Amino acid sequence: MAQGFLARVAGRTRQIIATVISAGAGSAGDIVALDDAGKLDVSVLPLGIGANVVNAVASEAIGAGKFVELWSDAGTLKMRLADNSNNRPAWGYVKAAVASAASGTAYRLNTVNANLSGLTPGGDYWLGTAGGVIDAALDPETDIGKMDQYLGKALSATEVVTAEFEPVYL
């Protein structure tokens, strides 16, 4: 829903519609409005302020809530499912599913991934396979060749407050 206000422009009263998404310098001086979710769009925020995200092309299909690794494909930044079985550490996660070869947004660790299910509130979680989570650390004696990465603590059955820890290669 467009939000507007009345202003005097050249001696006349005009309705001015507030800006939700900035067009850059062309939006200079505009009054800002919240989006349909009641939040400011990142495009109206100054550089360095806003969500800590990376937009990258997915090299495989990635489901909502899955943890992802960022990697270089011949010099092009891409994202793929993080996985403890093949040494792909989690850099972040996606909130919305991303199709293979499509561009998507990865959210950095140290935030809340609220797109999970089946978690035990208060439980600790580690990186599993195919971007998923497991509720126990890997065993250094039996999981040789895998990567153990702590991801965070469950706040609810669907949320993990993530932490950024260096993975341990077993």
Rank of each mutant, 00 (worst) to 15 (best):
L47V: 10
S59K: 11
P89G: 06
A58H: 02
A61C: 05
K66L: 12
D73P: 02
G92M: 07
V32E: 08
L70Y: 06
G50R: 02
V57T: 15
G38L: 04
R80P: 03
S43T: 10
A64S: 14
V44E: 06
S59M: 12
D41L: 08
G38W: 01
L45G: 05
I62P: 01
R88M: 10
R88N: 15
D73M: 08
G50N: 02
D83Q: 09
G92N: 10
K78C: 14
V44S: 06
A58E: 03
A74K: 07
M79G: 00
V54N: 05
S43H: 09
S59D: 12
A90F: 01
A51Q: 13
A64Y: 10
G50H: 00
L45S: 06
V53D: 09
R80E: 14
A58L: 03
L81V: 06
D41S: 15
G50A: 01
I49N: 12
P89E: 08
F67L: 08
Y93V: 02
G75I: 04
S72P: 11
K39M: 08
A82D: 06
N55I: 12
V42T: 08
Y93C: 04
D35Y: 01
L40S: 06
V32A: 12
D35A: 04
I49H: 09
G63T: 12
N87G: 09
G29Y: 01
A64T: 11
G92E: 11
N52T: 09
L81G: 06
A64C: 12
V53P: 02
L40K: 03
M79C: 05
V57F: 05
V32W: 06
R80Y: 02
G48K: 01
N86A: 13
S59W: 06
A37L: 11
D36R: 07
D83V: 04
L81S: 09
G65W: 00
D30F: 04
N86Y: 07
D41R: 10
T76V: 15
E69R: 14
A74L: 09
V68E: 05
L40W: 00
A96W: 05
N86P: 11
A90I: 00
T76Y: 03
I31A: 15
F67W: 02
D30G: 11
A51Y: 04
A82K: 01
R88H: 15
R80N: 09
N84R: 15
D35I: 00
D41E: 14
V42N: 15
W71P: 05
A58R: 00
V54G: 04
K78I: 07
R88F: 07
G38V: 03
N52A: 11
A33R: 04
A33E: 11
P89T: 06
V53C: 07
I31L: 12
D83Y: 00
N86I: 13
Y93M: 03
T76K: 11
D30A: 14
V54M: 10
A61T: 11
G92V: 07
V94A: 02
V32T: 14
V53M: 04
A33N: 07
P89F: 01
G29N: 11
L34F: 08
T76L: 10
G92A: 09
G75R: 00
D83R: 04
V98C: 12
W91T: 09
Y93S: 03
V98L: 14
K66Q: 15
S43K: 08
A97E: 15
V68P: 03
P89N: 08
S85L: 05
A96L: 14
A64L: 12
W91I: 03
K95W: 08
W91P: 07
V54P: 03
D73N: 14
G29D: 10
W91V: 05
T76Q: 13
